[in-house]
Computed example of a mutant assay.
Amino acid sequence: MSTARLPAEWRYLLAGAAGTAITMGVGRFAYTPLLPLMQHDHGLDAVAGSWLAASHFGGYLAGALLAALWLPARRRAAAFIGGLVASVLSSAGMGLSETFTSWMLLRFVSGLGAAAAMVLGGALVLERLPATQRAFGSGLLYGGMALGIVGSTLAINGLAAGGWHAPAIWLACAAACTPLLWCARPLLEAPPSSVAEARTALEARPLHLGWLLLAYACAGYGYSTSATFLPLIVRGLGVGPQISAWVWLLVGLAALPASFAWGWIAARCGSRRALDFAYLVQAAGVGLPLLLPNATGALLSGALFGASFIAVVALALAIAREAEPTRASRVIGLMTSAYGLTQILGPLVSARLIGPHDNFSWPLVLASASLLLGFALLRLAYRRPPLRLLTESA
Rank of each mutant, 00 (worst) to 15 (best):
W170N: 04
A131Y: 04
Y339G: 13
A172I: 07
L61F: 14
A254R: 11
A267V: 02
R352C: 04
N157D: 04
A48T: 05
G355P: 10
T178L: 15
S350R: 06
F277R: 08
A201D: 05
A328M: 11
L180I: 02
R107L: 08
L275G: 11
A314R: 02
A381W: 01
A367P: 06
L300S: 12
V85E: 05
L214W: 06
S193H: 08
A131C: 00
L6A: 03
L140M: 14
L372K: 14
Q282S: 05
C183L: 15
G302C: 12
A267D: 10
P257T: 12
A198C: 01
W248L: 08
L6P: 00
E322Y: 01
R268S: 09
V125A: 09
A176E: 07
L304R: 11
Y221D: 05
S87N: 08
V85S: 07
A295G: 14
A175P: 02
L341G: 13
S370Y: 02
V349F: 07
M104G: 00
F309Y: 15
S110D: 08
L237V: 03
T391V: 00
A123G: 01
A160H: 14
V313C: 13
F29R: 04
F29A: 09
L71P: 04
S393L: 12
P356C: 12
V286Y: 07
L154T: 03
P289G: 12
L214R: 09
A284G: 07
I265F: 15
P179K: 12
P186Y: 08
F277N: 02
L290A: 12
F108H: 06
R107T: 10
T336G: 10
L292M: 15
L237K: 13
V26H: 08
A295Y: 08
R268W: 12
A217P: 01
I332W: 02
P231T: 04
R199Q: 15
D45A: 10
L159P: 00
A86Y: 06
V88K: 09
A255S: 15
G148I: 03
W103R: 04
I319L: 14
G122Q: 14
C269D: 02
G158V: 02
A255H: 08
A15D: 02
I149H: 03
A62N: 02
L230S: 10
T336P: 01
L371V: 06
Y223N: 13
W10T: 01
S110Y: 04
S50I: 04
A266K: 07
M145K: 01
T153E: 07
L348R: 09
A86V: 15
W264D: 05
G252C: 08
A123K: 03
Y382P: 02
V195H: 13
A274V: 03
A114M: 13
T3W: 07
G355Y: 07
P289R: 11
S224R: 01
C183S: 12
